[in-house]
Nucleic acid binder design. Structure first.
Lengths: 219, 219, 219, 219
DNA sequence: GATGAATGAGCCTTCATTCAT
DNA sequence: GATGAATGAAGGCTCATTCAT
């Protein structure tokens, strides 16, 4: 039958129709599948060597479906780094929002970071392979990927600034300290990956906390 | 073709003829040109996006010559990281060989690293882009790239071990300390690159030495 | 599924049930919608660049419905050219059936053609873009599209033959004259489209009638 | 050996080196092969359905070589229509330059057109399939393809204008007469193609000249 | 020996067509 | 019966690698 000429057009911008929300839900499921598969394939082969075919196969979805959800390969990587970056940002925001004293906050942050990456080993590998955004210059928000890391580092800087003001941390440019924190994080995790991911989470947390304390704490 | 019955095989391991040594010298000149050009092209575009064609043009050498010196693109990257890695290793060896006390050695090492990367900015960018070898696991020498970094880190570890034994450095796995040292190095340099390479060498050395002291020195 | 043993097959060729005729009527409505939308999309983008998706959207019908009415994209174009061709044929038949003298008939034909295309601008564009059937060879009816144009040209030929016999038209192969008539038609209309469709119908009719008179009338 | 550091750099913009001219000559040979093959494939299947692979195979050249000579598929078609269009333009220019009286010039033009298309049957088919440029509006030279046809029609218009001024041709917009001339040309040739290309050149020339005389000549 | 033109395998992306709901 | 989301084949284009000159 011909499509009815929308007597419910009034609702159009109001509540979404069940059909629309179903559609949105389905697309969201696909999105997650695609992102998951892509994350793993990118992690294993690196972005350039990764083939969309493989992602399609791993996701159990056709090429067409992938392209229904993402405009292209680049945007797929973007989306992964974006999603994960946002999750990390939320994590940091939560930790910071708790309002604990600086040293404690740093310890919590270490625990949170390690926990997140241990929980998402594929992303960890991808992050170690392709995640150079945290070294990028503050470009004024032109690149979303970099923007998220700037937000993350911004929060970290605020902690460092606080700690420095209270005489708890070494006196050094907070921006550099934030990056150093990320670097220490990366060292511990990279070492873990390189060693075959054998240590458990607590060990890694302890290791990072140790490094962090020694690096930043004023004795 | 008929298999030639190599009558001059005896010469093979004997003294190289002038012709041979001339050939070797020529190839070596080519190699250097190719490696130089590749380093710059890889630094600018990244390994995957770099085109051999551009390297050929920049080197002023034909594709054929490049392939006469290197088996393929991958080996070209390998060679660069190898060459530079070896130079870095030599640097570290020299610093260690001087036999200074641990803290001083670490300061010298900081100066040497910074100096090397500031002198080779193209390699620095390539190192930040593609150089993940220093995080790799000790694979038992299967990968030469990783092997060199293991050697470097091995030397650094010896310093840290010494320092720990003398009660000068924090007590932590020397291997992890070595990687941390590399990470700090990377942070300072990445920050420098991101900021437009404006600071001079001394500033960077000072910054790294500060970080290093605070991170490793036992108070 | 088990193959049903069609007990109502007897009804198949009998009188159509109300259900069947309702079905047929419905399909016919769909057909018209689809053809209209397709005509516009084909006219705008050309056959190859046109996307069925767009036709579906413009028709307000699902892809499935389109494929319920047409076997594929090619048949859709076919159908448009067919429908329009048949309408044109009817037009010509009506003009010819009036039984006016040849010159007058040609003038009427000119008016009718221009009128039809001015009334169906989308088809005009499609006709100028993809309508090459009127140049096709008499293939013996293999292609329906060409067949219709052969019928049209056949009628025109009969007029030309009549006019030639009466000494009114130039002596030339009637078939060629018929095609020339179509060409003149096309020139006037293409010029109109190219000029932005600004002139009104009467102007175009006058222009074509002038060309036609000068081309075919024996002085 | 390393490329010599150009002692002949002075010559650089002066005479082309033998190497360069050889290169240019080779590319030109390829260009011709590619264009020839493309012309035939485009003529047979139409632009969109034509596959570069087929052109590659027919030309006896690899995909890479095709792309060394043309940036893409579209430019390939462009180049064909361009080349042929320019040749046609030259033809027209030569005919017009002879300075014969208008009627004679038109007869010569008919002979030239027919001759050209009979000599290039693949292009004829392509022209009938994809050549709609001669109907296009004068867009001010934005499209090269259209521009050439504007030049051609411009020359034809000048002939018509002359003829009209001398009272030899019917009084009608010269631009429309020029397009009509092209249309008559197309009719004769399309008819020839449709009929299996059996008539010889003289027959076609006679046919077109007859049509042209009757269409344009003032009695 | 060096050249660099030629090769062609491989991948991202589109869209006609189908079929589960 | 109608839907429109899912499919996946197909093709334009790139660039690492080779080899005739």
């Amino acid at each position: 039958m011909l499509r009815r000429d929308v007597p419910r057009s009034a609702k159009r911008t109001a509540a979404p129709t069940p059909r629309d929300s179903a559609r949105a839900a389905r697309l969201d499921v696909y999105r997650r599948h695609v992102v998951d598969a892509a994350e793993r394939v990118f992690a294993e082969h690196g972005f350039d060597a990764a083939r969309l075919q493989d992602i399609s196969r791993l996701a159990g979805l056709s090429m067409g479906t992938i392209y229904a959800v993402f405009p292209g390969k680049a945007e797929l990587l973007q989306a992964i780094l974006d999603d994960r970056g946002r999750e990390l940002l939320t994590l940091v925001q939560d930790v910071v929002a708790a309002g604990r004293p600086p040293r404690e906050t740093l310890q919590e942050l270490s625990r949170a970071y390690i926990g997140y990456f241990v929980d998402h080993p594929a992303f960890l590998q991808l992050h170690l392979r392709e995640g150079r955004a945290w070294i990028q210059a503050p470009t004024g928000g032109g690149d979303r990927r970099a923007a998220i890391w700037q937000a993350i580092h911004g929060l970290q800087e605020s902690i460092f600034r606080q700690g420095i003001d209270q005489g708890l941390f070494v006196e050094e440019e907070p921006a550099l300290l934030a990056k150093t924190f990320s670097a220490l994080d990366q060292v511990v995790l990279a070492d873990w990956v390189a060693g075959g991911m054998r240590e458990d989470r607590a060990t890694l947390v302890g290791r990072l906390q140790g490094l962090v304390t020694r690096t930043f704490a004023r004795s």
